Computed example of a mutant assay.
Amino acid sequence: MENTILLVDDERMIVEVLEAYLLKEGYKVYSSDNGVDALRKVDSVKPDLIVLDLMLPDLSGEEICRLIRKESDVPILMLTAKSGEEERINGIVMGADDYVTKPFSPKEVVVRIQAILRRANKQHPQQTEENILSFNHRELVLDLTKKEILFHDESINVTPIEYKLLSNMAKNPGRVYSRMDLLEKIQEDGISYEGYERSIDTHIKNLRKKVELDPREPKYILTVFGMGYKFGGVQDAKNASL
């Protein structure tokens, strides 16, 4: 089944060029040149990935990203004219999965889209007891088949990167991961993500807000000073199910 891409940019030339490249690769493409229409199409089209420009005539790309993240974990690739490290990190904080700075190569955008979708569209393993990770008397449950996280029996909305970090750490409780170790868990397909090592701290901060009763006193995602992070949950016996 072909993946659907929503392009959100008010520069018509950029949209036309990216659309041509994506159509050639077999994607179904929709486009929008403003934030209000983009949000409407997110609901109606249900895209598999959104390419989102930060500079739009009505709503900012940041606001659009925040609104989308309240309802969906659809992958978002941000387009920005700002190349500073802080701007890139801010994009990740908002919930973006990747970013590309303008001017850019259309081929690079397509490759990054393909990489994100490969991670999102991986074949789900067959449902077995081994694919359920339950911690602290089912306070935190990860279904590795459905890629779903439950905290106090409520489904938690996480970004694909947040899920990848948490699931990898939860599979190995007590193991200490350096920031570079965690960076390698989200960095695939031979693509370099400059400046992302520092953004690991941002992802950890966001995860703690979602899976900790008190993010200031975490019991699941623990800091190991001078080294990195480790998962501190106590795994339940292998008889939990969602």
Rank of each mutant, 00 (worst) to 15 (best):
R208E: 04
D236F: 15
M55K: 07
S72P: 02
N157A: 14
G226W: 10
E87F: 08
L22D: 02
E25V: 03
D189W: 03
L165A: 02
A240Y: 08
T202G: 10
Y21Q: 13
K209V: 12
I132D: 06
I116G: 02
L22S: 05
I116Q: 01
C65R: 04
Q127T: 09
A170Y: 04
H152D: 10
F104S: 08
T128W: 09
K28L: 04
K46C: 14
E87A: 06
V111R: 03
E148L: 14
V211S: 07
P106F: 11
A96M: 11
I191P: 00
S167T: 10
E2F: 12
K41V: 11
R66W: 11
Y21L: 06
V36P: 00
D201I: 14
K28W: 01
E16S: 15
G190S: 04
E129L: 15
I191F: 00
D43K: 15
E85W: 05
K122I: 06
R198W: 12
E197L: 06
L39C: 04
K185P: 00
K171F: 13
Q127W: 14
E19G: 05
K238Q: 10
G190R: 04
S241Q: 12
T202C: 15
P106I: 06
D48P: 01
Y21D: 06
P160D: 07
R119Q: 09
E162W: 00
V17M: 10
Y27K: 02
S134N: 03
V74G: 05
M227P: 04
K205S: 08
A115I: 05
R119M: 05
E85S: 02
A96N: 05
G84Y: 02
M180S: 12
Y21G: 00
V74E: 01
S83D: 14
A96P: 06
E71T: 10
E71Q: 11
D33L: 10
P218M: 12
H137M: 08
E188M: 12
T145R: 10
Q114D: 12
T101W: 06
A120D: 08
M180W: 10
K41G: 05
G195Q: 05
V224A: 15
G84M: 01
V93M: 13
G91V: 09
S105T: 07
E184S: 11
L52H: 00
T223V: 15
R112F: 03
L23C: 09
N172G: 06
I204T: 04
L22F: 09
M180T: 15
S167D: 09
L79D: 03
D153H: 03
V8Y: 01
L213Q: 12
L166Q: 10
G95N: 09
E194S: 13
